[in-house]
Structure formats: C-alpha cells, structure tokens
C-alpha cells in the first residue's frame, strides 16, 4: 500500500513541491511572506482553472488546445458587448456572459468531436484558429483599456488584506475562490457521479464504454461544454486581473497548461489523472517560475528550468515503467533441497 502511494506521480510532485518550498524559503525568507503567497495564488488561479478543464479532457482520452482561444474570445467579446450596452453592474454578470459564450464555443468543439468522431487534437487545433481568427477579424484586434466599470474594479476585489512588516498592504484576490470551487466541483464530479465515472470509462476503453451502453455523445458534449465554461470564466478572471481586454493574449499558453496537468499525473493516453495531482502540478510550475528571482536566478532562466522540470517530471515514471517491463512475473520454483 505504502509502495503504491510512493509510486504515484501525485506523491512525487507533492514531495518535490514541499522540498522546493523549503529550499527556496531557506535561501530567501521573503518566500514565506503572505505577500508572496498571495501572488502565487493569484498567478496559479487562471492556470489552475484551465488545468482542471484540461484534466477532464485528458481523462476522457482527448486533448484540447482550443481552450485558450475560447477564453480570450469569451472575455473580449463580453467586454465589447458590455461596453456597447453601457452595462454598469458588477462582475457576476460578466462571468455569466463570458461563461455562456465559452459553453457555446465548447459545444462547437463537441459537435465536431462527437458527431464526426474526429481526433480531438485536430479538431481543437482547427477550432483554435477558427475562434481566434473570428475574434480578431470580426470582433476586434485592439486592446481595450477602457473597461466597463464592474470589470475595471475587479482587480481590487480582495478577500482580505494584510499589512506586512514594511507597511505594504497585500491582499488575497477573491478570484482564488473560483479555483477552489472549480476544484471541488471537479473532484465531486469525477469521483462521485456516474457522469464522472463515464469520463474515466471513456478514457479507459472507448469500445467497452460503448458496449456497456454509456452515452458517449452525451458525455463528450458535457466535457467540451464544461471546459468551455471553465475557459470562459478563467478568461474573464484574466482580463479583470490585468485590467485590460487584449484579444491577442492568452492563446499560446495552452501547451504550458497541458504540461502542468501532465506533470500532475494525468495521462495523455487517457483514463488517468486526479484533481489533486493537477493542482500540485500547477503549483509546482507556478512556484518554480515565480520564485527564481527570490533565489537569485535571473528570470531569463525561467523557461529553461520549467522545461527541465517537465522533462524530468515525466521521464522518471517513464524510466520506471521501462525497467519493470524487462522483468516478467514468473513465480520461479525454488530448487528442491538435495
């Protein structure tokens, strides 16, 4: 049992994360200040929500590279519409609209994937171009800095603030609640609902799932609509936190998010992955990239370090399984005593 626990990717990533925190904290105590942790939480929020969406797609045996396009599309379009109608209300309406747009775009993915059974990578590559091209061409390609009031104020929506020893006030942004909520919902969904289990079943063996009578079309429609919803919300958070709507932003991050998710133990081949692992993967990447400066490594090395983490983090289990395969399990009879 203990051995099984240690062979899990989640454990490996979790331990690495703790060790990393201890090392960074030992080198530079600033690491342990609330301000730094609030920053980390803020950086991890959008990536984390994206990653949960990626997790669900990966578990089902698919891969999605269009979620960043959905995010920027939903966020930018919402901003344009709200500006256009002169909406004065608060942020919930923005999330609702952006999420709804995300669902619609997700349904377009689902249409191609479920109706024509096309490979998910190819479909989402196509829809990524489609969504982004449509956004930039039809809706707009300029950065909007003149935001609707509700959205403009969002970056100041802290859960609480603390004033540290140097008199600087830092706050934990409320967006992190979205990440917590999404994580909980995803965990309950994947673990305790038949829908969630059907996602694992689909990723484990599509044929078996079909024969067992799972409604695969319905499951896939749900998956891509849900991922669309998450992307829409995450996009809105991104826009709010950055206090601008840039239609040329976000797209390009998809591979990084997928990498973090896989680092957390989700299998590219489908059927495996957990919410906790995904969160750990995202945290590891976030801590790593945000803390290099704290330990005196110039930030130009940031990508080198992340690339190395991804390679090492995925190579360790790969080598382990390679070794195991060389030894079959024959129960060899001991020699009879002469």
């Amino acid at each position: 049992m203990l051995k099984k626990l240690f062979s899990r990717q989640e454990t490996l990533v979790g331990v690495t994360l703790i060790v990393l925190c201890l090392v960074i904290g030992a080198i530079n105590p600033v690491f342990w200040t609330p301000g730094n942790w609030f920053d980390l939480a803020r950086s991890a929020t959008v990536t984390g929500i994206f990653a949960i969406g990626v997790l669900i797609v990966l578990v089902s045996g698919g891969i999605d590279v269009s979620f960043t396009a959905i995010a920027v599309f939903s966020m930018y379009t919402t901003t344009v519409i709200m500006n256009q109608i002169g909406f004065e209300g608060g942020m919930p309406a923005f999330f609702a609209m952006s999420g709804a747009i995300g669902i619609v775009l997700g349904l377009i993915n689902a249409f191609f994937i479920a109706r024509f059974r096309l490979p998910t990578l190819i479909v989402t590559l196509g829809t990524q171009s489609l969504f982004r091209g449509f956004l930039l061409f039809v809706i707009g390609s300029k950065i909007i800095r003149d935001l609707p009031p509700g959205m403009a104020q969002y970056s100041g929506a802290f859960l609480f603030t603390v004033t540290d020893a140097r008199g600087i006030t830092v706050g934990l942004h409320s967006a992190v609640l979205f990440l917590v909520a999404v994580a909980i919902v995803a965990q309950l969904l994947l673990r305790y609902t038949m829908l969630g289990r059907s996602i694992y079943a689909l990723g484990g063996s599509r044929e078996a799932a079909e024969r067992a009578g799972f409604n695969i079309v319905q499951t896939q429609v749900f998956i891509y609509a849900f991922v669309g919803l998450l992307a829409g919300i995450a996009g809105m958070i991104y826009g709010g936190l950055n206090r601008q709507a840039n239609s040329q932003d976000i797209v390009g991050q998809e591979l990084d998010v997928i990498a973090a998710t896989v680092l957390g133990g989700a299998s590219i081949a489908g059927g495996r992955g957990s919410v906790i692992g995904t969160l750990l993967g995202v945290m590891l990447v976030t801590v790593m990239s945000n803390s290099l400066i704290l330990v005196g490594i110039p930030s130009i090395w940031q990508r080198v370090v992340i690339g190395a983490i991804i390679i090492i983090g995925t190579a360790v289990p790969a080598i382990r399984s390679l070794r195991a395969a060389r030894r079959a399990n024959v129960d060899i009879e001991p020699l009879p005593a002469e």
Binding site: R197, Y200, A201, G203, G204, S205, E207, A208, A209, R211, A212, G270, G271, R272
Partner: peptide, 11 residues
C-alpha cells in the same frame, strides 16, 4: 462476454 472482455483497464 466478448473476446476482449470489454473491461476498463484503468478502473
């Protein structure tokens, strides 16, 4: 019960 059993290897 089909020849390949139609089980879910990951469950």
């Amino acid at each position: 019960i089909y020849q390949d059993f139609s089980l879910f290897p990951n469950l």
